[in-house]
Structures are given as C-alpha cells and as structure tokens.
Amino acid sequence: MKLRPVQDPGDPPYDSPGYRSTELRAPKRLYLLPEELHDPTGPVFGAADVDPADSDLTSHHEGEPLGERIIVGGRVLDSGGRPIPHTLVEVWQANAAGRYAHEVDRHSAPLDPNFTGAGRCLTDAEGNYRFVTVKPGAYPWKNHANAWRPAHIHFSVFGRAFADRLVTQMYFPGDPLFAHDPIFQSVRDPKARERLISSFDLETTEPEWALGYRFDIVLRTTPFE
C-alpha cells in the first residue's frame, strides 16, 4: 500500500507554535487515509445511552448554579448540509467563575457546589440538540504571560461514521479575548473560525428565563450514500 503524505490537512494545523503544548505532542508523520481503508461505520447511540436530564446542566445538584442561565441549541449537519439525527453530543465547561470541577484546575476562582459542567444529549430526527447551562467564565492558563482563554463550551460530536468524529469548542460572540487566544487563532481561515462562534438567538431565548445561543455544527463527513 502506497501512503501519500499530508502537509496541512486543513482544520487547525497540529503544529501551532503559539500553543505551547503542541511542541511535544503534534504528530510529525501524517498520511492521507488510503481509499481502501475508508470505513463508513460508526457507533450508534440510542435513548438508553442518555437521560433526558443530562441536557440540563443546571439541574444536576440540589440547588441552582450561580451565573447567567443560558440555552445553547443548534443542529448537527453533514458537509452537504443534511441534518444528522440521533447522534450523541457531549459538552463540558467551566462554571460561571471560570473554574472547572476538575482536580487539575488550580485557578483561584471558586468552585460551585451546584455545578459540575457536564452534559449530553442525542440530536432529534431533524438533527437538533439543546442544552440548558450557565455561561462559562473566562479563565487564565499558563501558555504565555497573562494568558486567558475566551469563554467556551467544549463539544464532542459523533456523526454517522467514526471518521466523522469531532471535538471542538464553542465560543460566544464578540469576545475580546479572541485576538489573544492561540487555540482559537490556530484555525487560520477566518471563515472557518467564525464557525466556532455561537450567535445570540432571540428564537432560542426564553422570556423571563434565559438568553439563547445558536451553534450549528458541520461535520467534515466523507461522501455517504
């Protein structure tokens, strides 16, 4: 089998010197997947894999978490714009103060006993998903002097084939930290970067209750018939 090397596969290049952790981890030997190894299969999830309460991150403890309650919704689409139904979407995030409920996070911001920051759901028949959560705070990291991550929610999406798998981060519109964040800026194409930013959505917003943000996710799917 002859392997064709890949220089820059699009998406953020693995080798992004501004993001220090790439230095010892970015792979150096990348090859285009040969046609004969393309695998159109992938895991299938069902209602038994998720609890409906999993999609409301504000409901997992006795009390309500502190911070600004928000609704995040959108659709999961293939590269042809067709919805992907019944696929698993997982999210995790910092609390409103910018602190993750994870032992490795040493930021001095307070933990919230009423917020873990993990959720999941299946898309419906039209590819829609919806989470209720609180807006995560920005937080410092040690990548460079005075480094701060823009507020974001981590997303993990499956799609139809295991090869469609996407892990990404959703940002909020107008964040002043965009220009200073090497992870966001690792995506060099400005149009592709826009895809990472949710939009405020009055239709998703619920009166007297919570602002809504829309984040559609387009997977880089292999041709599918």
């Binding site: 714009g81 892990v167 990404t168 992870i183 592709a192 559609d216």
Partner: peptide, 18 residues
Amino acid sequence: MTATPSQTVGPFFAIGLE
C-alpha cells in the same frame, strides 16, 4: 458547507467524556 473546525479536547475533558 464550511466544516466546524476541531479544537483541542483540553486538560479537563474527564468532566464530560466518561
């Protein structure tokens, strides 16, 4: 359609990815 780009899973994924 422009695909949604990937971003790192980061150091805290264990919260959400069991």
